[in-house]
Design a protein around this nucleic acid. Sequence first.
DNA 1: CGCCAGGCCTGCACGC
DNA 2: TGCGTGCAGGCCTGGC
Length: 271
Amino acid sequence: MPELPEVETTRRGLERHLQDRRIEDVTVRIPSLRWPFPPQLKAILPGQRIARIRRRGKYLVLDCSRGQVILHLGMSGSLRILSAGTPPGPHDHFDLLLDNDTLLRLRDPRRFGAVLWTETDAERHPLLSALGPEPLEPGFDGKLFHAVTRGRRAPIKQVLMDAHTVAGVGNIYANEALFRARINPRTPANRIGLSRYERLAAAVRETLLDAIQAGGSTLRDFVGAEGNPGYFQQQYFVYGRIGQPCRHCGNPIREVRQGQRATFYCPRCQK
DNA sequence: CGCCAGGCCTGCACGC
DNA sequence: TGCGTGCAGGCCTGGC
C-alpha cells in the first residue's frame, strides 16, 4: 500500500535506471486503470528521452522530451525494472521498453493506479495542482498547518489524510504521526492550537523520513526483486496494533473508525 | 464464502 | 444563492 515513503523509495530505486534513457516502445495490456490509458501514448512516447523521475505527493512524474507521464500506484501498484522480454504476469498492465534492453513495468492488481500524459507542466495538471504542500519541504510547517485548518471542524486525522491539506499522508502514517505528536485523532482540527500543530508538522516529517529510511535499506534489492520494496523492519507505534500495549505507556491500543477508515491510537498518550 | 484493506475521485447533503 | 465542508459510494483483487 504505497504512501509517500513507498512512492519516494520507488522513485529513488528507479532514478538511475530511467535517467537519460530513451523510450523505444510502449505496451498497454488493459484499456484502463482508474482512468483510461491516454490513447496517444503508444504513438507519442517512442523516441522521447526521460530526463528524470520526480515525485509530488503520491504521484510520480516522468519528465520526457515533449511532455510528462504522470503515474499513481493506487493501493497495490508497483514499478520495477526488468530485462526486456520478461514475460508479463496477470496484473502487469503497462511497460516502457528502454534503449538498454530493460523495461519499466507497472503492476497493479487492484487497478486503482493511474497512467496519465500531459504536455503542459505536470504541476498544473488538475490532479496535482490541487495538492497541498509537500510535507518534507520547507513550505510545510506548523504555522501553515494551523492557518489552513482554522475553518475545519473535521477530526484532525481526516484533515491530515486529506491530500489537499498536506500531500502524501495516508492512513498508516496519519495514525503514526498523530501518535508521535500525542494528539487524539478525533480532535476537531480547528480546536488545535499553533504549538500542537508545530508538534504535528514535526511528527509528520519524522514519521515519513523514518519510513523512507526503512525502505531505503531495501533499495539494493529493488531491481528484479520478487516483492515490493519492503518495510519489514518498520515498527509501527499504533497502526494495526489494536489491543497491544502502547510502546510508550503500556496501555492497550484502541481502534475506532473515522470516515470508513481504521484509526489506531493510545487513549492515554493521545489527548 | 464474505469481508475488508488501501487512495482518492465524484456526487450529494448540509450549514453558514 | 453560493460556497466550503463533510460524508458516502465506487473502483478492484488478494488474503484472511
